[in-house]
Amino acid sequence: MSRKYKQFFGFMALRLAGLIVLFVLFYIIYDIVSKGLSSINWEFISQPPRRGMTEGGIYPAIVGTFYVTVITALVSVPLGMFGAIYLNEYAKKGRLSRLIRMAIRNLAGVPSIVFGLFGVALFVQWFNFGPSLISAGFTLGLMTLPVTITASEEALKTVPDAYRKGSLALGATRWETIKTNVLPLAIPGMMTGSILGLARAAGETAPILFTGAAFFIPHLPDSPFSQFMALPYHLYILATQHHNISVVRPIAYATALVLIVLVLLINLTAIILRIKYRKKFENK
């Protein structure tokens, strides 16, 4: 009997943990939607802010976040893929690959504000990009690198070794084997994992704070070297830095809602990709 009870309480505890996660997620979404939805209209997503951000919309911030995420992707997805291919397919299990893996793990633990400072030193000053889309995108790109490398490596690990050996035994080189027999299977997984990392990056404030995000620019960035407005930073200002916080509170919630929808959309892309490719595999 007591074993049965133990089992029962064990299950309940586990289920409770699961339900708490669900509750937190839904509560956040509910809170934001209920407080922000009323401020959302076409003007809000198509116009720049006006009158000290108390009116108008957040269009430049949406575009800015979109641009900076694209640059982040251009940096972190290829680097992550190549790094993972090197680690999983070429590197011998020796000192160097252990060192690289350790670096990746530690990089993943570096606080994002530290990445921001690093981005200032490296991209803004050393490369002289100034505070700009490109400095911010590169900073975010480096920050998500551990995610894209790890996701890509996991995807490569799911490709059975027999496919590699079979190809090599037919006289293919290592690179031909990877290109024709490994990557086609691994790329969907690499993409899904990387996109999830990008969604995270799109919502980051600290790394772009000093590297390119601007308080207020009424027009859109016209080159990669322009400063830009970004949703998370805009939200941060509305929520904490504004001279009339209570007046702009609904706008802050609406901005949060747009940001969350954007992040969910990015995640959705990843999920759709995964489902599509899983289907393809199952048919085979």
């Binding site: 027999a162 006289g171 080189t173």
Partner: peptide
């Protein structure tokens, strides 16, 4: 090694068709 393996073909103990 690449041309060696072209010259010396191999059929594995476990069938390993590619997907």
């Amino acid at each position: 090694v690449v041309s060696l393996r072209k010259k010396v073909g191999m059929v594995f103990q476990q069938p390993n068709p590619f997907p």
